[in-house]
C-alpha cells in the first residue's frame, strides 16, 4: 500500500497544551483519530489541512513535503463538524464553489454539480439554502462540495456529532458506502469509539496531545497497550486476584449459579436488547459481565453468583 499522507514528528505548542504526533495514512484507507475532547485531534486535522502551521515536523503527501504549502494548494478536502455550508449560498452554489474558483466554464460546472448531486442524492434540494435542509442532507452537501474538486485526501471533523442516533446510524452506512465507492483516503476525527470502530480501517487513539496507540479496531480492543487505551475503548473490569491485577472484558466473564473462581452477588441487570449487562458485587469491587439476554433470564438481583473467565483472558493481560 502507498503511503498517502505521513505526519513526521509534528509538534505544536500552546501556552498550556502541546501536540506531538507521527502517523501514516495509506492509500484508500479510512483512518480515524479517536480521542476525548481536548485531546488535540481537531488541531491535527487543521495542521494536515494547512489551517494551522506546525512548530516543527513534516507533512508528506504522496511523497512530497507539503509542510509549507498553503492550504488552498494542498488539494485536501474537509468536512466540518456542522458542515460549514456557506449560509449565503444555495446548495447548488455551495457545491459549485470549488469549481468556480478554477475558472471552468459555466456549463462544465453545471454538469459536474449535477453529477455529484445525483451521486449523493441531493439533486432535488439544489436551489435551497442551507438553513432549510436537514442534518443528513447537510452532510451529503458537504461531502459533495468537498469531493467535487477531486481532493487527494478527505478530512472529516466529527461530522455526525450533532445528529440524533437514528440518523447517525444511517449516515454511518452511507459514509461507508461512499468510501467504498470513491476509494478516497479519509482521515476521520471523532470522540465516539463505536463510530470509529465501525468505520475505520485503522484507529489512531489520542489523549492529551499524544498518540496512545495506532491499530485496527480489533487490535485496539483486544490488545490495548496503555491503560488509557484499555479504559477508553469499550468497558473493562479490573480484578485483583492473588496479588495481581487482571483486566477482563465484560463478555469474557462467564456466570454460573454453581461454580467459578470468584463469588459475588447480582446487584442489577441492564437489559440492552439481544445482550444484557449484569452488575456483580464482589467483596471490594463491582464488575460488569455481558451475556446473551436469553442466557441470563434465570438470574435475579440478590442472587449469589459464581464467575469464571474465558480461556484467553490470562494471556492478554
Amino acid at each position: 500500500m502507498n503511503e498517502k499522507i505521513v505526519l513526521l514528528e509534528i509538534c505544536k505548542n500552546y501556552s498550556d497544551f502541546s501536540i506531538k504526533a507521527s502517523f501514516i495514512a495509506y492509500e484508500g484507507e479510512l483512518v480515524s483519530i479517536l480521542g476525548p475532547s481536548g485531546s488535540g485531534k481537531t488541531t491535527i486535522l487543521h495542521i494536515i489541512a494547512g489551517f494551522i502551521p506546525p512548530d516543527s515536523g513534516k507533512i508528506i503527501k504522496d511523497g512530497i513535503d507539503i509542510t509549507n504549502v498553503r492550504s488552498e494548494k494542498r488539494n485536501i478536502g474537509i468536512v466540518f463538524q456542522d458542515y460549514a455550508l456557506f449560509p449565503f449560498l444555495s446548495v447548488y452554489s455551495n457545491i459549485a464553489f470549488g469549481l468556480r474558483l478554477k475558472h471552468i466554464s459555466k456549463k462544465e460546472v453545471d454538469v459536474e454539480v449535477r453529477t455529484f448531486a445525483n451521486a449523493f442524492g441531493i439533486e432535488n434540494i439544489l436551489s435551497k439554502y442551507p438553513n432549510l435542509i436537514s442534518g443528513g442532507e447537510k452532510q451529503r452537501v458537504a461531502l459533495a462540495r468537498a469531493m467535487i474538486t477531486k481532493p487527494d485526501i478527505l478530512l472529516m471533523d466529527e461530522p455526525m456529532s450533532s445528529l440524533d442516533a437514528k440518523i447517525r446510524e444511517k449516515l454511518r452506512n452511507e459514509l461507508k458506502d461512499f468510501h467504498r465507492k470513491f476509494g478516497i483516503t479519509i482521515v476521520y476525527v471523532t470522540h465516539d469509539q463505536t463510530e470509529a470502530m465501525y468505520l475505520s480501517d485503522r484507529i489512531i487513539l489520542m489523549n492529551n496531545g499524544r498518540i496512545e496507540q495506532i491499530g485496527t479496531s480489533v487490535e485496539l480492543y483486544y490488545y490495548p497497550q496503555t491503560s488509557f487505551a484499555r479504559e477508553f475503548i469499550g468497558k473493562i473490569n479490573s480484578i485483583n486476584m492473588d496479588g495481581e491485577t487482571l483486566y477482563v472484558r465484560p463478555e469474557d466473564i462467564k456466570l454460573s449459579k454453581k461454580r467459578g473462581i470468584l463469588k459475588g452477588i447480582v446487584a442489577d441487570i441492564h437489559y440492552l436488547g439481544s445482550m444484557s449487562e449484569i452488575v456483580v458485587k464482589l467483596e471490594n469491587s463491582t464488575i460488569f459481565a455481558l451475556g446473551l439476554t436469553r442466557n441470563i433470564t434465570n438470574f435475579k438481583a440478590g442472587n449469589s453468583v459464581f464467575l469464571s473467565f474465558n480461556k484467553n483472558v490470562k494471556q492478554r493481560r
Binding site: A49, F51, A84, G98, R145, P151
Partner: peptide
C-alpha cells in the same frame, strides 16, 4: 463569525 467557513473555502482551493 466562526473561522471554519474560511477554512472550508481554503480547502476548496480559494486563495486568500
Amino acid at each position: 463569525v466562526s473561522d471554519k467557513y474560511e477554512f472550508a473555502a481554503k480547502s476548496l482551493g480559494a486563495k486568500p
